[in-house]
Design a protein around this nucleic acid. Structure first.
Lengths: 155, 155
DNA sequence: CTACGAGTTCAAGCCGACTTGAGGTCAAGT
DNA sequence: ACTTGACCTCAAGTCGGCTTGAACTCGTAG
């Protein structure tokens, strides 16, 4: 198997060409050269894309992912950091599991109003909705903060 | 406990006032009236915010959440939909779990390059990164599509 | 009466991860 | 020689979920 053009990489991974270009621009992947204008990719890029997808599936930001990949190939981070990430994921999983349970329960609990049901309340609490640690995904990092005069966290 | 002003709601939930206003604008919560300009909230809003947080924790969009809440109070959707949501969450959990395992394994596997390790490869595959079903979070819905001439999915 | 500060509105900005569109290039087929 | 069409670049747009800033309005304490 020789080098592939962007269309082939796209076809084999399902990742759109525009995304591949974007990833290259961000330094997540690299093309091995050009033929004319066209990028040529080493088949190893497929593996790398799988890793990137792994990271995305884990909810990591592209920047984080790129900090986890070595240029020559694959992830080679220190245990600490990987473990920290795994722990983070673990907490997400806990929350999601509680949320799932709350949903399942709500689907079959006869209580007129879900919140009247202790099982549901417990799930809500476990989901982090009672105490608002809530760092799920995307923005929304309500941190149970004094609330008045919370300072900007970004820019 | 009587009606609360926005600061109190914020203090008690950790949700910034700006977010509360935004939620009201989106119809996710409602204030029970005004004193002068100032919104007054019924304590029941706390419960509703907990539910919203539950939804967010589950990765649901605000619009989805609002479609799950009845105006008078709480979620009262048909079983089908709740179960569908729970199933969706379940798939997310599977992926996240595989990702976590991949990370944990990568942290202690001695293989020079993680992808050489079958355990890791398996985790990557389970994480959806090999077959790219990858509908994790946020954009990035690569659907193993013909790749050339994929048509726009949004506006 | 006046100032203060917490509240209000509205429009605009921000972030991440891409996508889209206009306009350009180039290798290969006829 | 010319057309085709896949690829290219770069700037701008999109989407969700908020946040921020400017300008304004009140209720209350002094």
């Amino acid at each position: 198997m020789k080098d592939m053009d962007i269309a082939e990489v796209s076809r084999r991974t399902g990742v759109p060409a525009s995304t591949l270009r974007y990833y290259e621009e961000k330094g997540l992947i690299a093309s091995i050269g050009r033929r004319g204008l066209r990028r040529l990719f080493d088949p190893a890029v497929l593996e790398r894309l799988a890793l990137i997808a792994l990271g995305r599936a884990g909810g990591f930001a592209l920047d984080e992912i790129s900090s986890m990949l070595t240029p020559d190939g694959l992830t080679k981070m220190d245990r600490r950091r990987l473990d920290a990430k795994a722990d983070e994921l673990d907490r997400s999983i806990q929350r999601l599991t509680a949320t799932r349970e709350a949903l399942r329960h709500a689907a079959r609990c006869p209580a007129a109003r879900p919140m009247e049901c202790p099982t549901f309340r417990r799930a809500v609490r476990l989901a982090g909705a009672g105490r608002f640690e809530v760092t799920p995904i995307g923005p929304f990092k309500a941190e149970a903060v004094p609330a008045t005069r919370r300072k900007r966290k970004t820019g």
